[in-house]
């Protein structure tokens, strides 16, 4: 099949960027989206042009490295699917496909489709953990975890930190990301001692990074390749309120 790629090209953080068209004449529908970009890049290299920079590593939908806005949708048109797991059979012959980086003030562009997502790491550093030094843990079965709680924690722990939620949100909010980590740790018995400080510190860090506020548009959940639910944001709000009232810091 043939497609036209319209890709955001930007040579550096301080350069201006623009959309550039590339004609792809021999696309195999079984290719992944990134494999198609590989083919394009090999062609660009041989033509002496700069290949398109994009992040990727596992190509299995789990590391959270990849991520581009495809035809206006973070990770493209297929739900619950990362860019690396998107295949060309999702598109039709003759399509024009617009490819852009995540756009958010908190994720500055580094080059082409590569953005800086270290803000997410700093949010986790602020409190997205349980403080347990190596060797100090009690025997694993000394504390039972009801299965529904374990499952709920797991569903939130599935977040891959790709940033699609931020890219999808009209306000550039990172509430879904933060709520997933707060939900994961705050529903577990192990997470109780730091329950309040965790949420207060993470929300503070999130605000400091320049992410926008949440107005419950739900775009984040729709874009999330792991299906982190809106209910997590509601839980984050509850946890935040509860922690604020507790007077703990």
């Amino acid at each position: 099949m043939k497609v036209t790629l319209r890709i955001w090209r930007q040579s550096g953080p301080d350069e201006s960027g623009k959309l550039v068209d590339y004609q792809m004449d021999d696309v195999n529908p079984d290719m992944s989206f990134l494999e198609m970009l590989d083919v394009l890049n090999e062609r660009l290299i041989l033509n002496g042009e700069a290949p398109v920079a994009f992040d990727h590593d596992c190509r299995e939908g789990i590391c959270g490295s990849c991520g581009m806005v495809i035809n206006g949708m973070p990770h493209g048109p297929q739900t619950l699917t990362t860019t690396c797991q998107l295949h060309m059979r999702t598109f039709s012959d003759g399509d024009v496909i617009v490819v852009e980086p995540w756009r958010s003030a908190a994720f500055p562009i580094i080059k082409d489709l590569v953005v800086d997502r270290t803000a997410f790491d700093r949010i986790i550093q602020s409190g997205g953990y349980i403080s347990v030094a190596t060797g100090s843990a009690p025997e694993a079965h000394s504390q039972l975890v009801p299965k529904p709680d374990a499952d709920l924690a797991f569903e939130n722990a599935e977040c891959i930190g790709c940033g699609a939620c931020v890219a999808a949100c009209p306000n550039g909010s990172s509430m879904l990301f933060v709520s997933a980590k707060v939900s994961h740790l705050n529903v577990l018995p192990q997470g109780q001692p730091e329950r309040e400080t965790r949420v207060l510190r993470m929300v503070e860090a999130m605000d400091l990074e320049g992410f926008g506020g949440c107005t419950n548009t739900g775009e984040c959940t729709n874009a999330c390749p792991k299906g982190i639910p809106q209910a997590s944001i509601a839980r984050l709000n509850r946890e935040y309120l509860r922690a604020s009232l507790s007077g703990r810091r």
Binding site: I130, V132, T134, A137, P138, H141, K147, F154
Partner: peptide, 22 residues
Amino acid sequence: VQIIDQCVAQGVPFAREYSGLL
């Protein structure tokens, strides 16, 4: 054996049975 203890304490959501055991 210590690894499992450590990971559980960190909040790793291992699969559990209805009893709450791993």
